[in-house]
């Protein structure tokens, strides 16, 4: 109770408006946490499982071919008796590696081109953007197939092929962001303060687009993983001993016709669930990026 000396200002009863944002915010938080947990689980799995599970499960064992899921083989076995859990996790590891490296390479390349085009403008901009248009005109998969076909099968041709087809969107995003930043009065203020164009680019413009570029990179990882899987599914990706999830799904076509669903389902799920979780995290990040430009009070 309030003291008698201070009349009306009793402790206020705080409330949040029912139904407006508390529920939606709760769902959003739950989704972010679930996504984060799944991504963490994926990373732990690809790091730990190969170390913990005995390697002999990779061995061909024709006596136990195409066994359905059981306690001994939670994901079942493939048509030559290899444990599918272990092969799927290995495949996920390869897919994730290709996805992350390809996304990084594509983002660095895209940011460099986009930043150069946006900062320099003029004919440099025109030349670089026509280059981007030219690359965009070729269908992704076709370009990917071409690149892979030029090299011997392996991880690097796939990385190069995925990166080569994915830096374009980043370049466009970064250039657009640079152009938008470049017309802000704070660039005028920096010019008036004696800053060179180089300094303005490095100190004001590039740091301003890095969050966007980072977001683009994270959003690109799932995309790159799917692309790799598609190439592998077409038989153009990784060789059999470096099986990725795409390779596994491709190999499972035969057993699927014979009624064995598990060699398709489990690698497929391992591709879908982590990529969705990663995309969910990236979306939450994107939502966080915008309100920071507002003033303090509307938080």
């Amino acid at each position: 109770m309030a003291e008698p000396a201070t009349p009306p200002e009793a402790a206020p009863v705080w409330r949040t408006r029912p139904g407006r944002t508390a529920g939606a915010a709760g769902t959003r938080t739950l989704r972010v946490r679930l996504s984060a947990a799944l991504v963490l689980a994926t990373v732990l799995a690809v790091l730990l499982v190969p170390a913990l599970v005995p390697l002999d499960r990779q061995a061909v064992d024709l006596a136990s071919k195409l066994l359905p899921p059981s306690w001994d083989h939670p994901f079942g076995t493939d048509e030559v008796g290899r444990d599918l859990l272990l092969r799927s996790v290995h495949g996920l590891r390869v897919s994730l590696l290709v996805g992350v490296v390809a996304a990084l390479v594509a983002t660095v390349a895209g940011t460099a081109v986009g930043a150069a085009a946006g900062a320099l403008g003029g004919w440099t901009d025109r030349l670089l953007m026509r280059l981007v248009d030219t690359f965009s005109a070729v269908p992704h998969l076709l370009l990917g197939v071409l690149v892979v076909a030029l090299f011997r099968p392996g991880v690097w041709p796939v990385v190069v092929s995925v990166a080569l087809t994915h830096w374009l969107s980043t370049a466009r995003i970064v250039r657009a962001e640079m152009l938008s930043l470049r017309s802000r009065p704070f660039v005028d203020a920096a010019l008036s303060g004696g800053a060179s164009r180089f300094r303005i680019t490095l100190r004001h413009l590039v740091p301003g687009v890095l969050p966007q570029a980072g977001l683009a990179a994270v959003l690109m990882i799932p995309h790159a993983m799917w692309h790799e899987s598609a190439l592998s599914f077409l038989g153009l990706g990784l060789p059999a001993h470096e099986a990725s999830l795409g390779t596994l799904v491709q190999n499972a076509r035969g057993p699927l016709l014979a009624g064995a669903w598990w060699p398709t389902l489990f690698p497929g799920l391992l591709l879908i669930v982590p990529t969705l979780a990663l995309a969910g995290l990236a979306a939450a990040w994107r939502d966080r990026l915008s309100p920071r430009t507002r003033s303090e009070l509307m938080l």
């Binding site: 203020a189 010019l191 008036s192 301003g208």
Partner: peptide, 17 residues
């Protein structure tokens, strides 16, 4: 350039966030 100092109307746009 530096002989002329400038102040703009909207401080929020004129400051690198």
């Amino acid at each position: 350039r530096t002989a002329v100092g400038v102040v703009f109307q909207q401080p929020r746009l004129a400051a690198d966030p």
